Amino acid sequence: MGLGARIAALTHYQPATELTNDQLATTLDTSDDWIRRRVGIRSRRIASMAETVDQMALQAATKALAASGLTADEIDMVLVATCTAVERSPNMAARVAHGLGLQSPAVLDINVVCAGFTHALATAQHAIMAGSATNALVIGADQFTSVADWTDRSTAILVGDGAGAAVVRASDRDEIGPVVWGSFPAMNRAVRIEGIPSRFSQDGQTVYRWATTELPSIAIRACEVAGVAVNDLGAIVLHQANMRIIESFVKRLGVTKAVVATDIADSGNTSAASVPMAFSKLVENRMVQAGEPVLLFGFGGNLSYAGQVVLCP
Rank of each mutant, 00 (worst) to 15 (best):
Q289S: 14
A226Y: 01
A67I: 00
I46D: 14
N21Y: 14
G300F: 03
A97L: 08
A278V: 02
L28D: 13
A94H: 13
V80R: 05
A290I: 06
F299N: 03
D29A: 13
F144R: 09
E74K: 01
V250D: 05
L303T: 01
P197V: 08
T82A: 06
I139E: 09
F249P: 04
A47Q: 13
R42K: 14
F144G: 04
D266K: 12
P313R: 03
S267H: 15
G4Q: 07
I128D: 02
S274A: 14
E214N: 01
T30D: 11
E284S: 10
E284V: 01
Q14I: 15
A60Q: 09
S183A: 15
F297G: 00
G177R: 07
D76A: 04
V78K: 03
N302T: 06
R6H: 13
V159K: 00
N285L: 12
D161E: 04
Q125K: 15
T30F: 11
S274Y: 00
T30E: 12
D22Y: 11
I246Y: 09
I157L: 12
S217R: 09
V309T: 10
T213F: 02
A8D: 14
A273M: 07
G227T: 07
S201W: 00
Q14M: 14
L108M: 13
M243S: 12
V86D: 15
A165V: 06
R6G: 13
G300Q: 05
N269A: 10
G131M: 05
Y13F: 15
S171T: 07
V78M: 06
A25R: 10
D172A: 08
S48R: 14
A148F: 06
T82P: 07
G177N: 02
G140V: 08
A61R: 02
R38W: 13
A226N: 01
T134Y: 00
V207I: 14
H239F: 11
N242V: 10
V250E: 04
R37L: 13
G254H: 10
P293F: 07
A219E: 03
A273R: 07
T17Q: 15
F184V: 12
M1Q: 10
A190I: 11
L311P: 02
F184I: 12
R169Q: 14
A235I: 05
T27S: 14
A219F: 04
N269Q: 02
A258L: 09
G4A: 08
V255E: 09
D263R: 11
L311H: 12
G131C: 05
D32Q: 11
N242P: 12
